[in-house]
């Protein structure tokens, strides 16, 4: 008898290594360039003029950047808080039971922002909020926070639901058996066990909100730039390495939060 046929493996295809390397190259080379040039001492973004932190200093001292950064953080924090709260309740409502009628419909409804083109949502919100702005006269950050909360819900919902679905329901039965009231069962068993999922959902929602351009651009009132829309505005005029510096900081924050996210959602061995 001949040797057993090897199972199919994509890593054994000819040229696999080359293609893989090329893809990683394409993914990371532009980002690496951006990061490197944020430390460029020259005004040009194409010529290397030695290492310096001048663009970070410039961005740090730029009042418009400061203002936009604070606004971004406020919006992202509020949106993450609201979205995570709503998503937690949605996850509890959709997983703590067997299959029910209309379950798929509810999943689709909750995850709607993932499927509807963002530009459509943006235009819809623009028109909707415009009417409210006219009617109430309120021009504040509330619109941005609400809009961000809405599209962050599915990002918060998915990790929380995953966590709840992996949870042993008999644990709650056991708590009830040990004299815990329904509220105590939730406080002492369900909530602590789903906490990593909630934290992961909140971080993902925060990052998604921090990064949003399209909806923000349409919904914001005058003078309500967030960091991404401020950068977009800058790039329209002149490209300066200052934008590189801001991007690099945003990248660092995102990478940090996403690493935390993966650590939280990782299956424990």
């Amino acid at each position: 008898m001949s040797a057993r046929a090897k199972p199919f493996s994509v890593t054994a295809l000819p040229g696999f290594t080359t293609v893989a390397l090329a893809v990683f190259f394409l993914l990371y080379l532009p980002i690496a360039t951006l990061v490197v040039y944020s430390f460029n001492d020259s005004l040009s973004i194409a010529v290397w003029g030695g290492f310096s932190l001048r663009w970070y200093e410039a961005a740090w001292q730029n009042a418009a950047v400061q203002e936009a950064a604070v606004r971004s953080l406020v919006v992202a924090s509020c949106a993450a808080l609201i979205a995570t709260t709503v998503a937690t309740m949605a996850a509890l409502g959709t997983t703590r039971r067997g299959r029910f009628r209309g379950q798929t419909l509810i999943y689709v409804a909750i995850n709607q922002p993932l499927m509807v083109p963002e530009i459509v949502t943006a235009v819809a919100l623009l028109i909707f909020f415009a009417a409210i702005k006219v009617a109430t006269g309120y021009q504040g950050l509330g619109y941005l926070i609400l809009a961000h909360s809405a599209f962050c819900i599915p990002f918060a919902y998915l990790p929380i639901r995953a966590r709840l679905e992996g949870m042993d329901l008999t644990l709650e039965t056991a708590a009830a058996d040990l004299y815990a009231t329904p509220w105590q069962t939730f406080r002492r068993v369900t909530l602590p066990l789903m906490a990593p999922g909630i934290a992961a959902g909140a971080m993902l929602a925060f990052v998604i909100s921090l990064d949003d351009v399209i909806i923000t651009e349409f919904v914001k009132s005058a003078g309500q730039d967030t960091l991404p829309t401020y950068m977009l505005g800058q790039l329209r005029r002149a490209i300066t390495p200052e934008v590189n510096a801001i991007s690099t900081v945003l990248l660092a924050v995102t990478v940090l939060l996403l690493t935390a996210f993966f650590l939280l959602t990782r299956k424990r061995g």
């Binding site: 008999t170 056991a174 708590a175 058996d177 040990l178 004299y179 815990a180 068993v189």
Partner: peptide, 15 residues
């Protein structure tokens, strides 16, 4: 939670 009865579950169900 109001019955003076406790259970040892087949899967243990330890927290």
């Amino acid at each position: 939670n109001r019955r003076p009865v406790n259970t040892v579950f087949q899967s243990y169900a330890l927290f």
